[in-house]
Design a protein around this nucleic acid. Structure first.
Lengths: 409, 409
DNA sequence: TGGATTCGTTGTCTGGTCGAACGAAAGGCG
DNA sequence: CGCCTTTCGTTCGACCAGACAACGAATCCA
């Protein structure tokens, strides 16, 4: 089992324990609650081994023992004890940085949003101002956390290009940021030192939909995020496709129509000039100040206009390129693409069928997000939780206990 | 170490042994020969553990002990014993099915081509005829194999869409094949039962270049194959990007110019209509019967014509879409793109720089294949060898000893 | 020629999982 | 209502893989 993803290293038995412990936790995290018997069959390990692993997770305060599931009796035999995420267990802070607002949530294992808060963000705000606002939201959200619960880390979803090495925001067009170290800014404003990780919002949307949304069990999927810009998050082999620098999935600037409109990137006829928010807004005569809420504008739309139908066709045709290139099993239409698909789904399907090759086309389905507008937020939580699944003991070692008193001091 | 790629399974200690044994072999396979000391530092295991693993590989007849490397003395201390691929070790059959010829080789661990043979293939040949021809080449190539050497499997590179589940050739446009079970055909013609695996030629080119070509150590790369059609093989996180059905990388039909020429896929202005073999052939007035050797035709080309320079620009502009979508560290120009790049590299670079986003552009380099025309062939060998790196003992268990006498009977 | 360094080899130890045995908790049935 | 069957939790010993320490071997260097 488990061919290495990190290349070439050998495996010793401490690594086994870490890996198995993390895998148990990953399963419980995915399902919310499950029985030990399910764990044994899922992981292919011995009953006694699972017992040991579960016992260690309980003694770490991560999970707690649950009574056998009352609802489902599935035959004879002694019912298996349940494993459940502990109420006072570790949690993370998830931040979804949007163009016009920031959402901050305290998220526990299992993907439960324990507390959330949000505030508007001025699109011409300096990074340090936004960082201060986010830090204030974090303080709010942490306020009612149980003192026993450790904070594992902070995950931040960014509408822009994020370098994978260090989390530097290389470019966030709609915030007009260049080379901003936003993670450091937030930590400084908090006066705290916890692991922070940043990633692109579409990448995180894909991750969250894969973990607990419409794409559970689908190891090859693409999440198309329609915010002001157009981006894609790609899951391949069950893992995020990040690319060399972390910029993979910038599909908004695929060449679509070289005789088309100018794009802010400097070229003509990028896909984004046809299906981006500004393009759609002008197609439906949406006032410029409402472009950031394009999804809601589209919701209140009655009958699609010809221009909107043409946009749907262009969306489908562009998706065809992605389907040909990536051959996903599922394409999830996030952001305002969700509303758009509800209006002109037929045109999208037709545009896709028109230009995709038969073989990849027959195995792909278009889907709507299963997490609504929270995809990126929950994805941010996922990357912050990730260390727990790699090595629960080490992750708890670097976690911070009693955050509230530290923030007060 | 080694977070699982196959999801969810637990790890027991038999798995450790298999994994470590396979990893040692993978390293030796990659380097050809290396010292035990290098293995210990690369894998992070103890000296004695490496000794045990190497000893097992030797007793399996896969590797043999080599004297300490004579050439390189790197300081004081007792020189470390070498580990080398055994001369009579296991081997595989690699098949590169081209549009006009088939190449068959016997390839040992370390990627050494031990014997090769090839024959022309008629482009209107039926699949069973081609299969019989390939089987005859295999018999030739196996003839001089040592009787002690086991045959591990057969890998076949196909210019078309191959389904990953079962290796069915869904479509090979230039052979005019639809839904051909070529693996079964070859096995039937041989009268042998060994593991066969088929994959797309561009995918295999990428794999081979990543393992032992221009892309060694580069875990994010794209190999663009210019045969008659245009395809891409993608390596991401050090692994092949296959997609849900195995069809990922069909970039020849990316939308390039919707006002362009008709493509055989039924659409207008696919990238392939600008940079495909037929497009280039008409740009340089190459006779139709020489299209399949377009690379060699381009080699003998003096000064690039304006039309050829425009093709170079189109190549670069299309690559920009790939760079934006995948953010690779390296793009390898295989097939006739190699010759094309030697002629109009400046235009390719300019087209790429024109349309790629700055962030992904700055981390990408264009490169020529390090394996010449053998990329796909060696990639076919790699996938056939792969079981040895997952579990050497099991792979040798299903291997066939003394193939020659079996083929005679 | 002797010391330092690095490596191979051997034996012992530690740690993780497996397997068998036993008791516990449920369902099914007469 | 009692008993059997089934499934699970728990405990204990066995097994196996890798780590570690000690020793000898091979090389370089002064």
């Amino acid at each position: 089992m488990s061919p290495q993803r990190r290349s070439g290293l050998g495996t010793n038995q401490e690594a086994i324990r870490r890996h198995n412990l993390g895998t148990v936790l990953r399963h419980v995290h995915g399902a919310g609650e499950m029985s030990r018997a399910e764990l044994t069959s899922l992981m292919g390990l011995n009953r006694s081994t699972i017992a040991g692993l579960v016992g260690e997770l309980e003694s770490l305060g991560i999970t707690e023992r649950a009574d056998p599931a009352e609802g489902v009796r599935q035959g004879a035999g002694r019912p298996s004890a349940g494993v459940r995420i502990a109420a006072d267990g570790p949690y993370v802070i998830a931040v979804d940085l949007g163009v016009d607002r920031a959402v901050v949530a305290r998220v526990g294992l299992g993907g439960r949003i324990l507390q959330r808060s949000q505030a508007p963000v001025h699109s011409d705000g300096e990074a340090w101002q936004v960082g201060a606002a986010v830090a204030a939201l974090i303080r709010t959200v942490v306020e009612d956390a149980p003192a026993a619960s450790p904070l594992v880390g902070i995950g931040i979803s960014v509408p822009g290009l994020v370098r994978r090495n260090d989390g530097l925001i290389r470019l966030a067009p709609n915030l007009e940021w260049h080379d901003v170290s936003f993670g450091g800014i937030v930590l400084a404003a908090l006066g705290l030192d916890v692991p922070v990780c940043l990633a692109n919002d579409a990448d995180l949307g894909a991750l969250a939909e894969h973990t607990r949304g419409a794409g559970v069990g689908t190891d090859e999927l693409i999440y198309i995020s329609g915010n002001v810009g157009v981006g894609a998050g790609i899951i391949t082999g069950g893992h995020r496709l990040e690319g060399a620098g972390g910029y993979a999935g910038e599909v908004g600037h695929l060449r679509f129509n070289p005789q088309g409109r100018p794009c802010h990137c400097g070229n003509l006829g990028c896909w984004e000039t046809e299906v981006g928010a500004h393009a759609i807004a002008s197609a439906i005569a949406c006032p410029p100040d409402k472009v950031v809420q394009l999804g809601e504008v589209l919701e209140s739309f009655g009958k699609p206009s010809p221009a909107l139908r043409a946009t749907g066709t262009a969306l489908g045709q562009g998706l065809a390129s992605l389907v040909n290139a990536f051959n996903p099993r599922m394409v999830i239409l996030g952001g305002y693409f969700r509303s758009l698909y509800l209006l002109v789904g037929r045109e999208v399907d037709a545009g896709l069928a028109e230009r995709a090759l038969p073989a990849p086309l027959e195995s792909v389905t278009l889907a709507l997000p299963g997490l609504g507008a929270d995809s990126s937020l929950l994805g941010a939580a996922e990357i912050a939780l990730e260390p727990l699944f790699v090595d629960p003991v080490a992750a708890l070692g670097t976690a911070i206990d009693d955050v509230r008193s530290r923030l007060a001091g």
